[in-house]
Nucleic acid binder design. Sequence first.
DNA 1: CATGAATGAGACTTCATTCAT
DNA 2: TATGAATGAAGTCTCATTCAT
Lengths: 183, 183, 183, 183
Amino acid sequence: MAAILEATAQVLESEGYERTTTSRIAERAGVSVGSLYQYFPTKDALVAELVERHFDEVSSRMLGTLAELGEASAEAAVEVIVEAIVDLHRPHPVRHGAFNELLLRMDGLELLDRFGAHVEAAVAEVLAQRREPLGLADPELSAQVLCRAVSGLVRTTLRRDPERFADPAFQRELARLIHRYLL
Amino acid sequence: MAAILEATAQVLESEGYERTTTSRIAERAGVSVGSLYQYFPTKDALVAELVERHFDEVSSRMLGTLAELGEASAEAAVEVIVEAIVDLHRPHPVRHGAFNELLLRMDGLELLDRFGAHVEAAVAEVLAQRREPLGLADPELSAQVLCRAVSGLVRTTLRRDPERFADPAFQRELARLIHRYLL
Amino acid sequence: MAAILEATAQVLESEGYERTTTSRIAERAGVSVGSLYQYFPTKDALVAELVERHFDEVSSRMLGTLAELGEASAEAAVEVIVEAIVDLHRPHPVRHGAFNELLLRMDGLELLDRFGAHVEAAVAEVLAQRREPLGLADPELSAQVLCRAVSGLVRTTLRRDPERFADPAFQRELARLIHRYLL
Amino acid sequence: MAAILEATAQVLESEGYERTTTSRIAERAGVSVGSLYQYFPTKDALVAELVERHFDEVSSRMLGTLAELGEASAEAAVEVIVEAIVDLHRPHPVRHGAFNELLLRMDGLELLDRFGAHVEAAVAEVLAQRREPLGLADPELSAQVLCRAVSGLVRTTLRRDPERFADPAFQRELARLIHRYLL
DNA sequence: CATGAATGAGACTTCATTCAT
DNA sequence: TATGAATGAAGTCTCATTCAT
């Protein structure tokens, strides 16, 4: 079952969604289509499970990072967060890009929205705790704007210049974007 | 032909890409499949044409706005740009979202990249002209970061809360994101 | 109308049957599809007319040659016939080949059979007139065998080495085939 | 798979090429279109396979017969060959006719030419061995002429009077054609 | 009469899913 | 439980033919 999920990820990453068929997945996983359907009722369920796991991990890592910020200074906090984002995407930038694309094909995009909402809420909470020093009128709105801007930047860069993530200049600008927005 | 393009946009908007078939398009356009193929050699060509037109318009409107900034103050310039972005997306927010999704399905994403690179270059130029007062070390990088962050914010909001575009608070935050990033 | 028939022949010759469409024919003829259907009720009717004309000409030329043999010696007669066959195919060998292929696509092959039967009958008559000197038991059967063998040789050569028709060695062998068979 | 090939042959034989569709084949074979495409990548590949098998058999049987001629007298050799030709076509004359038609539709006719060239070469070899007693100037040319004439006769007869193959008179004339041509 | 845009039946092919072995 | 051949709905595209202009 893990093999099937991994095979799906690989096929998705190397062939693209359109060319990702159940037979190809089974072949890559070294099992038969039949076995695939023993574990997943549907192709969509398989893909959904994969995407869910992916974003659960992304989500929990970001949430973990946010939880550990504690009383850190704004500057330090931003630095930690940027580092987390970079560490998260550096190992498999292309695969992350593929999963982001994937989300858009899934009905209703509930998954992405669920994940996005989750992270946005966590960020909102962090911002609410620092409301006064930052002078934020509406921490929830700020969290939304910030999360969407940052993830858009990450997503596009992932797709257009994946290697950019290793560039300190890029990381500096990412930190600047966050830091300045929050003043 | 215009009817076919419009029908394609409608089907895409209401049914999503996966359910957008040539027959459905033809039906919605009130013509037969044959007619569709009289004007477009391929389903992909049809969609590509549609997307191209859409982003040509978006692109040219944004480029026009940038060209008119002239010597305006940074504050005024940001205000004008935000207004342009909002005006651009307010009329058909859902459709804009659909087109953004669509881009990701097209081979190589050349179109989006072409469009994105185009706008990024124009923004880089504007920033380069104001390099000193803004204290920008690398206007090109700043343009990339800014464009990707802003379009990510716009894209996600388009999908999750399209009506948000009418909210002055959102517009204020968008302006703030840009303004603060550039100092 | 002549233009349409000629265009059909050209398209058939250059593109092959599978790629011969009514639009291509109309385009080559410099008219519209509509005009084409003004003169021919059906694509098949158009092709049939073309084939009919072609074989009417072939047929009548061969029949004319046979009629002129008169009392000529067997040797002279064979020489005249071979010359006629060669003269008939030399100008447009490829087109003749195309028409032969074409025949096989037409329903029931009535046309080819009608033409073939016609020529076979004429040859049978000539052979019947010379029954005794040639020592023929069944001139009708001999005519069939001879005609089918000769036209098979011509057909295959037309397709595989069209230029062969100009080769005197080939012509000699063709004459030999006929002459020897009849003793 | 054998069932599919057999069904294809049957449909081809009874309906003609134009009316031979993948669905009809599948239906006749008692399977679904899907199964058909499990074994053959393309309709053309299926037909090609069928034709190839057919002509491989025809070819190898004729080649075998030629190889067994040994030192037999010319008369005996001709008799053996005619018998082989007749035995080959008598069981399914109509199907043989259908396959001959079929060849002409296949791209480039490579198959027929390959088969034809093969047999012509074998015949040329046999003739070359008997060059002197037969007084042949150019055994290769003679082989070509002979093969094309004979196969033309066979083909046409197959199509117009298939039952003729059982007639001793026809067989006598076929032998005569060959024998006399070679003197 | 000519035109050519429109039509739509139907061909080929794919692939998610099932089920007998 | 695993297998993978079989299924068939559905999609894309072609082209002979029609008919309003």
